Amino acid sequence: MIRGADLKHERIASILAREIRSGRVGHGDQLPGEIELAKRFAVSRNTVRSALAVLTEDGLITTRTGKGSFVLFDGRPLDDRLGWTQALAQQGVETELRVLRLALVPDAAFADRVGLESPDFVVIERLRVIVGGAAISIERSRIPAVGELRDVPSRGLVDGSITATLSQAGFHLDHGRQRLRGRPLDAEEASLLDRPVGTWFLSTRRTSWTADDRFAEQIDSLLDPQHFELSLNYGGTER
Rank of each mutant, 00 (worst) to 15 (best):
R101P: 08
L55P: 07
S208V: 13
L72V: 14
D112L: 14
R195N: 06
R179I: 09
T199N: 07
A51R: 06
V93G: 04
Q86H: 10
S14D: 08
N46S: 15
V129N: 09
D224Y: 12
P32K: 10
F41E: 08
L116W: 10
P32F: 10
V146F: 02
G75W: 01
R142W: 09
L166A: 03
W84E: 07
D220K: 07
Q90M: 05
R214W: 11
L60R: 00
Q168Y: 09
L193S: 02
S137R: 06
G83N: 08
A187G: 04
H227C: 09
R206H: 03
S208C: 08
I61N: 04
P225Q: 12
V43C: 12
R45E: 15
N233V: 10
V114F: 07
K39S: 07
T56A: 14
V158Q: 13
S44F: 02
I61W: 02
T163G: 00
R18H: 11
S137W: 06
E188V: 01
W200E: 10
V123Y: 08
A111V: 11
A89R: 15
R18Q: 13
A109N: 01
A164P: 00
D6Q: 15
P106T: 08
A42L: 04
P153V: 11
H227R: 15
T63N: 05
E188K: 02
V48E: 00
L166R: 07
I2H: 03
